[in-house]
Write a protein that binds this DNA or RNA. Structure first.
Length: 606
RNA sequence: GCCCUGGUAGUGUAGUGGCCUAUCAUGAAGCCCUGUCGAGGCUUCGACCCGGAUUCGAAUUCCGGCCAGGGCGCCA
């Protein structure tokens, strides 16, 4: 017997049709005479009814009721019946199939289900089992409407991306999963080679080098829905393996790449929501983002902007600020307006935020409240009335407003301030839930320079095209990030296409000739064969979709995610392998039961 | 590597030293029930993560571990 319809399909027009539905028994309700089954599949739920007062000709009631008795929850079953209009007043308006039901004539148990470890169906909030139970039985978790919708949205999203890229004559090209391990960056997942004992492939952290070499190979517009792997600790928005929309274009400027991505997002938006999205996205420079929002991926859905007070308070006889400013640091303030927050935060709350601030790496937190037209706090005695008035003006402080002041070294203080800003926004419920705020972060530096050692690190990665001479005091990078609601969706850049310049950048970040040759010799060589000016971008698919769907974690948009410890509770990987397999690979492990590495070192010393 | 939170029937929970022979809901099993839709009614079943310690007495306090989640570091 083949199914004639899905469980989400039948409507009033189908009344009278003989149908066969196959799906899972979600709920059943036996009233002693009349009995119902909610038959579910990924398309919906259809009500199946057995009605003693309306038994179609040819129905074997005994055999049917015996069969229906075997229908445990979540069993896969097949139902034959006739579509019937529901009795007046019993329609279910919440269900698209709710005006009809299938009068059962015959049924078959296709595969019995054991008692599910948790209840499916549309769960009310708070009754989901712990995530480890969901992950252990992910195949059942996936039957939930919420997961079905997430998988559908993800699939539609990727389909629209592919359509858009094809329309814009991008080639979809697969790059190797087994490739060379590269230094720098994240820790690699390694794959031992059997053919070349003692050597390893690495799983790609991104197809970066390959896509650049595709440009050298004239592939011009390339894209790939690429799986990437990083052996670093997970977060709710970070998994050891994840998916990126990876793209690269030749003979382009930064704006061409950004336009293409905006076009893609607009196309996807139209396809998903039938709505136009406003482009171009707003652009904000790295420095301004840091100094206004304390973040390189600012969430602009709410205000709470930092205002620099370094100049304003530089002459205040307040020792702490004096010392910080003399050491090249900064002071900045945040105004919690009376109506939105200031009056809701009492003295105890302020103390709590001072504690929070320290956790965020701030030296402390200064506060002032605007009362009777003046700024008042425990430290106002260290400020002159003129300076206090200037602070009040600068911050636009009005009656009842609460000011938080942060001070310290530029980067760490703004970063800590950004964390505080996010915490405040969350606590005070300032974040609009349904708004989507895209943003290009631009004008980034080429290098991140350690203030102590002076060591240069690539701000994005070492393939970014520098915007000026590498010996200048400040070097900009032709790179940019796309942010959405305070999350980084991805970053892009123009790349270096001149092999000499590439070597220069490698050297700047501390690599010597030998290391450059060993690790990137093949790549630099490729650039030497007429590499075109090129650039591209990578967008995190999991993150993007989880934000679109309002999920707290990317695990909710990945069919089979790993847990926090990079393990799969479903297939119980990673796992030990047979000694025989290790032998074949000529691999020995130091992770012997009961032995730890420290013991081993002391054995060596003896 | 570090910090924080949590772990009680299949599932979700209440319980902060004796009121615990552990609450409630859901579930499962059985019975009843002819219009429900997470049906309803009745009956029954089913649990304190592991190991130590404190105490007359521990689900509850302490120590160690395991597991899960959030964060820091890390993620060019």
């Amino acid at each position: 017997m083949r199914r004639t319809n899905t469980c989400g399909e039948l409507r009033s027009e189908d009344i009278g049709k003989k149908v066969c539905l196959q799906g899972w028994v979600r709920f059943s309700r036996d009233h002693g005479g009349v009995a119902f089954i909610d038959l579910a599949d990924r398309y919906g739920i259809t009500q199946i009814v057995f009605d003693p007062e309306d038994i179609p000709e040819g129905t074997d009631v005994n055999s049917l009721s015996n069969t229906m008795r075997t229908f445990t929850r979540e069993s896969a079953v097949s139902i034959n019946g006739i579509v019937r209009k529901r009795i007046e007043g019993t329609e279910d308006a919440r269900n698209p199939t709710g005006s009809v039901e299938v009068l059962i004539t015959d049924a078959e148990l296709l595969n019995r289900s054991k008692l599910p470890p948790f209840e499916l169906g549309d769960q009310k909030e708070g009754v989901l089992p712990n995530e480890d139970t969901r992950m252990r039985y992910r195949y059942l978790d996936l039957r939930r409407t919420e997961m079905i919708q997430a998988m559908e949205a993800r699939s539609r999203f990727l389909h629209l991306v592919r359509q858009y890229m094809a329309e814009n004559r991008f080639l979809e090209i697969e790059t190797p999963i087994l490739a060379r391990s590269t230094p720098e960056g994240a820790r690699d997942f390694l794959v031992p080679s059997r053919v070349h004992p003692g050597t390893f492939y690495a799983l790609p952290q991104s197809p970066q080098l390959f896509k650049q070499m595709l440009m050298v190979g004239s592939m011009d517009r390339y894209y790939q829905i690429a799986r990437c792997f990083r052996d670093e600790d997970s977060r709710k928005d970070r998994q050891p393996e994840f998916t990126q929309i990876d793209m690269e274009m030749s003979f382009v400027e930064m704006k061409d790449i950004q336009d293409m991505i905006e076009g893609m997002i607009a196309y996807v938006w139209k396809g998903l929501y039938g709505k136009k999205i406003e482009t171009p996205f707003m652009r904000i420079g790295y420095k301004e983002a840091m100094e206004s929002y304390g973040s390189d991926k600012p969430d602009l859905r709410y205000g709470l902007k930092f205002v620099s007070l370094t100049e304003t308070v530089k002459d205040a006889p307040y020792d702490i600020f004096q010392r910080i400013i003399k050491a090249g640091g900064m002071v900045a303030g945040l105004n919690l307006k009376a109506d939105m927050a200031g009056e809701r935060i009492g003295r105890n709350d302020v103390d709590r935020y001072i504690g929070q601030a320290k956790k965020f790496g701030l030296g402390g937190l200064t506060w002032m409240r605007c009362k009777d037209g003046k700024l008042d706090s425990n430290i106002t005695k260290y400020f002159t009335p003129e300076i206090l008035e200037a602070v009040k003006q600068k911050m636009g402080a009005e009656e009842g407003d609460l000011l938080f002041l942060i001070a310290g070294p530029w980067k760490s203080t703004y970063e800590g301030g950004g964390a505080l800003r996010r915490k405040l926004a969350e606590d005070l419920e300032l974040v609009p839930k349904d708004e989507m705020q895209f943003l290009w972060l631009v004008d980034c530096p080429m290098f991140e320079i350690d203030p102590v050692s002076g060591k240069h690190d690539a701000f994005h990665h070492p393939f970014v095209l520098p915007e000026n001479d590498l010996n200048d005091a400040y070097v900009g990078g032709a790179c940019f990030d796309l942010c959405l609601n305070g999350n980084e969706l991805g970053s892009g850049s123009l790349r270096i296409h001149d092999p000499e310049l590439q070597i220069e950048v490698f050297k700047k970040i501390g690599m010597d000739d030998e290391k450059i040759e060993a690790d990137f010799g093949f790549f630099v060589e490729a650039l030497g064969y007429g590499a075109p000016p090129h650039g591209g971008m990578a967008l995190g698919v999991d993150r993007f979709i989880s934000i679109l769907l309002g999920k707290d974690t990317i695990r909710d948009v990945i069919a089979f995610p790993k847990n926090k410890k990079a393990a799969s509770l479903l297939d119980r990987s990673p796992e030990k392998v047979d000694d025989k397999k290790l032998e074949e690979l000529q691999i020995m492990t130091l992770a012997i039961e009961g032995l730890d590495l420290d013991d081993l070192e002391s054995i060596d010393e003896e």
